[in-house]
């Protein structure tokens, strides 16, 4: 039980948080882990707050409930910080990764004194520079892999290349951009001191 890493994703419908959680599950599966990747389905509308979850473990996972005390939280859209209690139950030895351009002081205020580590990344910048469109999920996926250390970067990059080739078999022109987004995001994610 202790070796399970639990991750909660907060995003808005249409931003790909669910897809990101499934891609993370895929990547961890490919490194030999036991995985769960599941969204919490609600009214599915573009822009509505959505939650998705991951469990990653080296032994079989039997629990089938939502995650209430995650090790990591990923916030795909920083407008959620004002309306959703994103750090609820988040372990203080864990970390939160936020897609934002807000500065440290502003974030600390919004996170109501969360004592764990705070990481940020400007996923919009990464996405626009590499894909020319705003798809925050790929950069956020790379960011959480880096922060959580659930697999090494080289393995992750190699695995994602395979996943994208499969996923975008009919749109090969977007594979390069997504790979660049991953590599750039791995460098861009920074801890706030």
């Amino acid at each position: 039980m202790n070796d399970i890493i639990e991750i909660r994703w907060h995003g808005r419908g249409g931003q790909g948080a669910k897809t990101a959680s499934l891609l993370l599950a895929d990547a961890a599966f490919n490194t030999g882990k036991y995985i769960q990747g599941f969204p919490e389905y609600g009214p599915e509308r573009m822009g509505a707050p959505i939650t998705a979850y991951n469990r990653i473990s080296s032994s079989p996972i039997r629990i089938h409930s939502n995650i209430y005390e995650p090790d990591y939280v990923v916030v795909v859209d920083d407008t959620l910080l004002e309306s959703v209690d994103v750090t609820a139950g988040l372990k203080s030895e864990g970390a939160i990764v936020i897609n934002t351009t807000k500065d440290g002081n502003e974030l600390k205020k919004l996170l109501k004194g969360y004592a764990g580590k705070i990481y940020t990344i400007d996923a919009r910048k990464v996405s626009m520079e590499t894909l020319g469109k705003y798809f925050p999920n790929t950069p956020m996926l790379a960011a959480i892999v880096k922060v959580s250390g659930i697999m090494n970067e080289a393995d992750f990059i190699k695995d994602m290349e395979g996943s994208f080739k499969h996923k975008f078999a009919k749109k090969p022109e977007v594979i390069d951009g997504n790979m660049k987004a991953i590599e750039m995001a791995l460098k861009e994610v920074k801890e706030i001191k």
């Binding site: 599950a25 895929d26 036991y34």
Partner: peptide, 12 residues
């Protein structure tokens, strides 16, 4: 099987 809980969860 349980809707969403297992039907929509990716697992080994």
């Amino acid at each position: 099987q349980d809707g969403f809980i297992t039907s929509h969860s990716i697992e080994n």
